[in-house]
């Protein structure tokens, strides 16, 4: 029995070509929507005055939609570099937490693989991977393969946006701005549900809203997540299994 459990534990952080390909295919539906966001970004960036090459390079190297959109608001003849760095860092600081939550499964990988996988981490593939782990399925294929899908469609969408951006000039009217929100909410609702989890989520939501209202911009995700984490740390049943 112990052997069986040990091999099952080892299977969770398995990462090979087949799992990566499966992950790629599993994130394909949401990646198709990412094309639309990418195109919306391409259009917005053109309007903000960036050159075509700069826009595609940004999506390729930065690969972080919310931060990229926020950077456009600061784009102009004189870009406030410090504010830009702070904004990008604050919006992407959730990656730090995501990396921390993935570490139990990443720790047994070689450093090159461990950090290589993290290059393509973003909200959707991280959420899918965490859900897989919590259900006892291997998740790193979802993280890597799914991340490659999201990244390539983000870049493709950005490039398409340079030429056909006006087709998606108003994604909100088609409800398309809600794709990622609804996707992430489906992940939350599909996850573990019990009183302890509900309290953790309520505290996370409350802290996030307070930070959104009263703390510096873009701090709410980190504040809410850490508040929820602390509740989980100090309050929980002893027999909780992992």
């Amino acid at each position: 029995m112990a052997d069986e459990m040990a091999s099952n534990e080892a299977a969770l952080h398995r990462l090979d070509r087949t799992l990566t390909w499966q992950g790629f295919r599993e994130l394909l539906p949401i990646s198709l929507f990412v094309i639309v966001f990418g195109a919306a970004f391409g259009l917005a960036a053109t309007q903000a005055g960036l050159s075509d090459a700069s826009i595609v390079i940004m999506s390729t190297l930065v690969f972080a939609g919310a931060a990229q959109f926020a950077s456009l608001e600061l784009w102009g003849p004189h870009i406030p570099l410090f504010t830009l760095v702070l904004t990008v860092f604050a919006i992407n600081a959730r990656h730090l937490l995501m990396g921390a939550t993935l570490y139990p499964w990443l720790q047994s990988l070689q450093p090159a693989k461990r950090y290589g996988v993290m290059l393509v981490v973003s909200d959707a593939n991280w959420a899918m991977a965490m859900q897989a782990f919590s259900q006892g399925r291997p998740g790193l294929g979802l993280l890597l393969g799914g991340g490659i899908a999201l990244w390539s469609f983000w870049v493709l969408g950005t490039w398409l946006g340079l030429y056909f951006g006006n087709v998606v000039s108003d994604p909100a009217s088609l409800g398309l701005d809600m794709v990622m929100g609804c996707f992430l909410l489906a992940m939350v609702v599909g996850g573990e549900k019990n009183l302890r989890m509900l309290v953790i989520w309520a505290v996370a939501a409350g802290a996030s809203l307070l930070a959104y209202r009263y703390l510096p911009e873009n701090s709410h995700v980190v504040v809410g997540a850490i508040a929820g984490g602390l509740v989980g740390l100090f309050w929980g049943s002893r027999d909780h299994e992992y």
Binding site: R94, L97, M98, A100, T101, Y103, P104, D123, A127, M130, G181, L184, L185, M187, V188, G191, E192, M197, I200, W201, V203, A204, A205, G206, A207, S208, L209, Y212, H220, V221, V222, V223, G224, A225, I226, A227, G228, G229, L230, V231, G232, L233, G236, Y242
Partner: peptide, 14 residues
């Protein structure tokens, strides 16, 4: 970590 992982999404969505 376990509590924080769900909280990231909730804090993003709130």
């Amino acid at each position: 970590i376990h509590a924080m992982s769900g909280s990231v999404l909730v804090a993003l969505l709130a």
